[in-house]
């Protein structure tokens, strides 16, 4: 079995055994329950928020929790003295989170179709959720490596959410005016929000293209200049004295 497959499978097994899947599932049920009480346009406005929250917030928390356990149990040492490369290790985290986001898309989509008969453009939504999850997995990894514990990871994320995510959520809910919202596209969560909302409403093609280009470049830059150096520093700290 290729090593990347082993890492991904192992990560899924652990998400299950450490009850992180269960926690994620409870959140999904909560979203479905909320959807139950919403109707028509309100529901269509709310659905992109669910996918945005899942691919941003849940992704950061999920990757943070898995890295927290790896740190606590020193298992990263054991992985890094195997033939696994840094790239394979980090890529496995990204793949697992993307697959997890896909599970969310599938679950919510089937649920809202069954309970409300609502459909949307899945072909536009799926790639949007994928790229948003990739970027936020990397952001989550970066946060985890500079956090002392899970609490400080949460604090990092709350700061990030207030600075970058809340304006996007406000824009998605129409609290921020469209004029101001135009400039929010430079915030990663807003670019994410635009790409995800394209699955539910018409969005200018230029905005979509910019969003994909921007998030792709951002992912590469975060990986190269924020995650990899911090990973090496983290590894030295973990294995050193």
């Amino acid at each position: 079995m290729p090593r990347l497959t082993v890492l991904v499978k192992g990560e899924f097994d652990r998400l299950n055994k450490y009850n992180l899947f269960s926690a994620n599932f409870v959140v999904l049920l909560f979203w479905v329950l909320l959807s139950w009480f919403l109707e028509g346009e309100v529901l269509r406005t709310f659905l992109p928020v669910i996918f945005l929250m899942d691919s941003v917030m849940m992704t950061v928390l999920l990757v943070g929790a898995t890295l927290f356990y790896e740190k606590k149990e020193h298992t990263i040492n054991s992985i890094m003295i195997s033939p696994v490369t840094e790239n394979e290790y980090l890529l496995s985290k990204i793949i697992v989170n993307v697959l997890n986001s896909m599970i969310t898309v599938l679950f919510i989509s089937v649920a809202v179709y069954i309970i409300k008969g609502v459909t949307y453009n899945y072909l536009v939504l799926v790639p949007a959720v994928m790229i948003v999850t990739v970027v936020h997995t990397l952001i989550g990894i970066r946060f985890s490596y500079s956090a002392k514990d899970f609490t400080s990871l949460l604090v990092n994320f709350i700061v990030y959410a207030f600075l970058f995510l809340m304006p996007s959520v406000f824009a998605a809910l129409g609290i921020i005016s469209a004029e101001v919202a135009r400039y929010l596209i430079l915030l990663p969560p807003e670019a994410s929000s635009i790409l995800i909302s394209a699955g539910f409403q018409d969005v200018e093609l230029m905005k979509i293209l910019f969003g994909y280009g921007y998030l792709a470049v951002l992912a590469l830059l975060i990986y190269r200049y924020a995650v990899k150096p911090k990973f090496n520093e983290y590894l030295m700290k973990e294995t050193g004295v």
């Binding site: 192992g10 652990r14 298992t75 054991s78 033939p83």
Partner: peptide, 25 residues
């Protein structure tokens, strides 16, 4: 390599731990 500190996934059984690492070689 055998480290001084215990290194294993605590929620996995001993055999599951070994199986995971075994598949990497």
């Amino acid at each position: 390599v055998s480290f001084e500190m215990p290194i294993s996934f605590s929620k996995l059984t001993a055999l599951e731990n070994l199986e995971f690492f075994k598949n990497l070689y």
